[in-house]
Amino acid sequence: MNSARISELLKTRPKTTMYWGMYVASTQAGAEPDLGVAVAKKLAKRAVDRNRLKRMIRELIWAAQTSTLNKDVVVKLKKPIGRDTRGRLRKKEKETLRSQILGLL
């Protein structure tokens, strides 16, 4: 997905939960559905956690795009993670984030 398409999607109104903002738009004519993921360093301090979140999002969105969601998607983290655990992503919070993404789909 190129930067112009991402900027175009970010101008639309997002579906939101406590942690996530999901921007959805129909695909361009004859193109495959695309995905963009934004997990800012300010919101997830450790690279391990950022990469884990990105992998989780890609897995969930790609599964949805192959079955029901045939649109371009940009997913953006809105709120810092790991406030109670010294900036580390723990299993309980990871499951909360996963359930919120599934709720957006």
Rank of each mutant, 00 (worst) to 15 (best):
W20Y: 11
L77P: 05
Y19P: 02
K42W: 01
Q28W: 05
Q100G: 04
T12Q: 13
E93K: 05
L53G: 03
L69E: 08
Y19G: 00
K45N: 07
V74P: 01
K54S: 10
S99V: 00
L35M: 05
T68E: 15
A31W: 06
R86M: 04
L69I: 12
R90T: 13
A44P: 13
W20L: 10
D84V: 06
K42C: 02
L105Y: 13
T27H: 11
K45R: 05
A31L: 11
Q65S: 09
M22S: 08
V73N: 01
A40H: 07
P14T: 11
S26D: 15
A47M: 01
G87A: 06
G21P: 01
V24Q: 10
R83A: 11
Y23C: 00
K41C: 01
T96K: 08
K54H: 08
A29P: 11
Y19F: 14
T68Q: 14
S3N: 07
L69A: 10
K41E: 03
V39W: 04
T17W: 03
N51A: 05
E93L: 06
A64N: 14
M56Q: 14
L35S: 03
E95R: 06
R98M: 06
A64V: 07
T27K: 15
A44C: 13
M22V: 13
N2A: 00
Y23M: 03
R88L: 08
R13D: 07
S3L: 00
N2Q: 00
K78L: 10
I101Y: 04
V75K: 03
D72K: 10
A44K: 08
T27G: 09
L102D: 10
N51L: 07
N2G: 14
S67E: 14
K15T: 10
E32R: 15
R98E: 02
E95W: 01
